[in-house]
Design a protein around this nucleic acid. Structure first.
Lengths: 255, 255
DNA sequence: GGAGGGCTTTAACATATCTTACTGACCAAA
DNA sequence: TTTGGTCAGTAAGATATGTTAAAGCCCTCC
C-alpha cells in the first residue's frame, strides 16, 4: 500500500485518477449514467477524504439520516467477532463500495475494519443527488442496484460457506474478487492487488490459516493461481470457474 | 399445514386474522405506524392471494419496476443449488416478509421454494403507498428498515456458517426463528410452528441430515428444546443464548 | 388392511478440516 | 548486528462432520 506513495510522478497521477473514479466506475458499471452524473461522481471521489490505518476500525455515522462513507482506495471488511475470539469477515468492501449499506441497524459487534490503508470520502452528496431525479436521473437507481448487487454477493457468500469445500470456496472467492475489481479499473491483465493475509483469507472463508495455506499450495501446484506480495494472478479462469461454480449476479434486463 | 383447514370455525377466524395481519405486524414492529397505515396494510393482507403447494417454486415478477409478493402464511426459502445437487437454503422467508427483496438481480439459479403450503399477496399496493409520504408517512421507511433488517440477518447467517459449530448454529437459528415469529404473532408461550424437516434444517445450516439428527438429539438430552410434528419449543432460552451468541439486530435509535 | 412414500433414527466407517507446535523469511526498529 | 514482530510454510495427531446403509415410524392411498 505505502509503496503507492513513492511511485514516479506520472504513475502517481494515474493512481489518483483511478481512486477518484472508483465510485463513478462502480455505479456506472451497473447503469448507464449521463456525462453529468459521471462528472459529479468524479468530483465526489476527488473531494475531501479520510485516511485510515491498516487494522483500524472505521466508525460509522449511525441512524436514519446518516450517509455512508465510500471507499476509494484500499480494502476493508465487515467483521463479526465471537466471544472466544473467532472472527468472521462477513464481506469484503472494495473501492467504489459504500462502507456499510444498512445504517439503520445498530452495528454493535459488527464493525468495519481496514485490511490495508484505506481512503474514504463522505457519501452525503450522493445521497442528496439520489433525491434529485431531474438533475441526476440515474443516481438513485444506480445506488439501489449497487445495494441489490451487494446483497446477491452476500448470498453467494452463504452458499460458499454452507456447501462448498475449501478449494471451491477459495476459487469462488478469487473469481468474485476479480469480478468486482474489474469495473473499478483495478485489474491488469489477469492479475490484481489482493492484500489479504492468509489469516484474513481464512476469516473470510471460514477456514483455519493452516488449511488456507494447504489449499493455496494445491492451487499453485495445479497452476491455477499465483499469490505473492499481495498480488493475485488467475492463470486459468476456466478451470477456476468449473471448480467454483461462480455465477456473478446478473442485472435483470430493465424495461 | 392442511390441519389448519379443518379447525373449528372460531379458530379458523383467528388464523385468518393472523394471516392478514402478518404484513402490518411485521412492518409495525420496526416503526410506529399510523392507524391509517396499519389499516391499509391489513387490507393488503386480506386482499386476493395466491396459493402455492409445498415444494413448489414461486415465480418472481422480475425487473426494475416489478413489485414483490409478500408471504402471509407458510414458510419458504431462497434456494441456491450447486450442479451436483448440493443445496443451500440461503435464507428463510416467513409470514410478513417480501419473497425476494432484490428483484433487479437476475435470479437464475436462485429460486424461492415453498417449504409448506404458502399464501402470498401482491405487494404492488405497498410499493405505491411507499411513494405517497403524505397519506402514508411511515410505509417507505418501514419497508426500507425491513430490508436492512433482513440484510443483517443474512450477515448472521454468514457468521453461523463460517465460524460456528453445528450445535451453535442450530441454537442460533432457533433463536432467530423465535425472534422473527414473535412480532408476527406466531409464537405461543415458548413454542411456535417450525415446519422444517431435518433435511431442510441441514440445508439451512450447511450440515448433513445425519448430523442434524445427532445435534437435535443432543439438544433434547440437555432439555433445551422439543421439536415434534413441526412444532418447536424452546425450554431454556438462556442456555440457548449462551451457546449461540445470538444478537438480534437492533434498530438504531432514530432521530 | 396392506403397500408405498416421506421422514426420523442409529450404526460404522471415512475424511475434510482443525489444533498445536515449530521453522524460516522478511522487515523495521533499536 | 541484534531484536522483535508479522507472515508464510510444514508436520503430526485430533476431531467434527460427512457418507453409506439399514431399520422403524407414521401417513395416505388404494
Amino acid at each position: 500500500m505505502t509503496s503507492e506513495l513513492i511511485l514516479a510522478p506520472e504513475k502517481r497521477r494515474n493512481v489518483a485518477d483511478i481512486r477518484s473514479a472508483a465510485i463513478a466506475r462502480r455505479l456506472g458499471s451497473l447503469l448507464m449514467l449521463t456525462p453529468g452524473e459521471t462528472e459529479f461522481l468524479h468530483r465526489v471521489g476527488a473531494g475531501p477524504m479520510s485516511l485510515w490505518a491498516p487494522r483500524s476500525l472505521i466508525e460509522q455515522p449511525a441512524g436514519n439520516h446518516a450517509s455512508p462513507r465510500y471507499i476509494i482506495s484500499g480494502w476493508a471488511a465487515q467483521v463479526r467477532e465471537l466471544n472466544d475470539g473467532r472472527r468472521q469477515l462477513v464481506q469484503l468492501v472494495l473501492p467504489g463500495d459504500p462502507l456499510a449499506p444498512q445504517l439503520q441497524i445498530d452495528n454493535r459487534g459488527r464493525t468495519v475494519q481496514c485490511l490495508t490503508m484505506v481512503q474514504t470520502v463522505d457519501g452525503a452528496a450522493i445521497r442528496l443527488a439520489a433525491r434529485d431525479p431531474v438533475k441526476f436521473p440515474g443516481i438513485a437507481a444506480a445506488v439501489e442496484l449497487a445495494a441489490a448487487y451487494d446483497r446477491a454477493l452476500l448470498q453467494e457468500q452463504v452458499t460458499r460457506l454452507g456447501r462448498q469445500t475449501a478449494f471451491e470456496r477459495m476459487a469462488n472467492l478469487f473469481l468474485e474478487l476479480h469480478h468486482r475489481c474489474l469495473p473499478v479499473g483495478l485489474v491488469q491483465g489477469d492479475s490484481f492487488s489482493c492484500p489479504l493475509t492468509q489469516e484474513s483469507l481464512g476469516d473470510v472463508l471460514g477456514l483455519s490459516v493452516v488449511h488456507v495455506n494447504r489449499t493455496l499450495q494445491l492451487m499453485r501446484r495445479q497452476n491455477l493461481i499465483t499469490l505473492r506480495q499481495g498480488r493475485l494472478t488467475l492463470h486459468d479462469m476456466p478451470a477456476l470457474r468449473t471448480a467454483a461454480e461462480f455465477k456473478p449476479p446478473q442485472l435483470e434486463r430493465l424495461q
